[in-house]
Amino acid sequence: MSELKGDLIGVIGAGVMGGGVAQNLAQSGFRVVLIDIAEQALERARSDIRNNVRFQAFGKKDKSQADDPQVVLERITFTTDYAPLAEAAYVIENVVEKWEAKATVYPRLEAVCPPHTVYAVDTSCYSITRVAALTARPDKVIGIHFMNPVPMKPTVEVIRGWHTSTDTIAVTNTLLARMGKNSVLVNDSPGFVSNRILMLTVNEAAFTVQDQVANAQEVDEIFKKCFGHKMGPLETADLIGLDTILYSIEVLHESFADSKYRPCPLLKKMVDAGLLGRKSGQGFYKYK
Rank of each mutant, 00 (worst) to 15 (best):
V184W: 03
I142H: 04
F55D: 11
G15F: 11
G283M: 05
A38S: 12
G241F: 03
L8E: 11
I9P: 09
G281W: 05
F223E: 01
T168E: 12
K153Q: 14
S259P: 09
F58W: 08
N94R: 01
A103G: 01
L267A: 11
D48H: 09
V131S: 08
K98N: 10
E93H: 04
I12W: 06
F30C: 13
A177I: 02
V121K: 01
K98D: 15
Y247S: 14
N52Y: 00
Q23C: 13
G18Q: 07
V71D: 03
S28Q: 04
K288P: 13
I249K: 03
A45P: 12
T117L: 02
T80R: 05
N195W: 05
S64T: 15
E74R: 14
V186H: 00
K140T: 04
G180E: 02
Y82V: 05
E87R: 10
M179E: 00
L266G: 07
F192Q: 09
P263S: 14
F207E: 06
A111N: 09
V16Y: 11
S259E: 12
T164K: 03
W99T: 06
G232D: 10
V271S: 08
A89M: 05
A83H: 13
F55Y: 09
F284V: 03
S255M: 11
E235V: 09
A89L: 07
P138S: 08
T79H: 05
G277R: 03
M152R: 12
F55G: 01
V91I: 10
G161R: 03
L239C: 08
M1A: 11
G29S: 12
D220A: 08
P149T: 11
R44S: 14
A66C: 10
N52G: 08
A22T: 13
D36T: 01
Y82G: 06
T104P: 00
P190V: 06
A170S: 15
T208N: 12
V219Y: 07
R160T: 15
G281P: 11
Y247C: 15
V33D: 00
G274I: 05
Q40W: 03
P154K: 10
V91M: 02
L134A: 07
N173E: 15
L175G: 02
K61V: 10
G143H: 04
L134R: 00
P149F: 05
A41G: 14
I240H: 01
K279H: 13
T164L: 02
I9D: 06
E110S: 07
D238E: 04
L42T: 13
G15S: 06
M179T: 01
Q282V: 11
A66Q: 07
L198P: 08
I159G: 10
T104D: 12
I128A: 07
L246T: 03
G13A: 05
L242A: 08
G161W: 13
A103L: 01
V118R: 07
F55R: 08
D167F: 00
D238V: 10
Y287F: 13
Q217A: 15
V53K: 09
R196C: 14
V156M: 02
E3F: 09
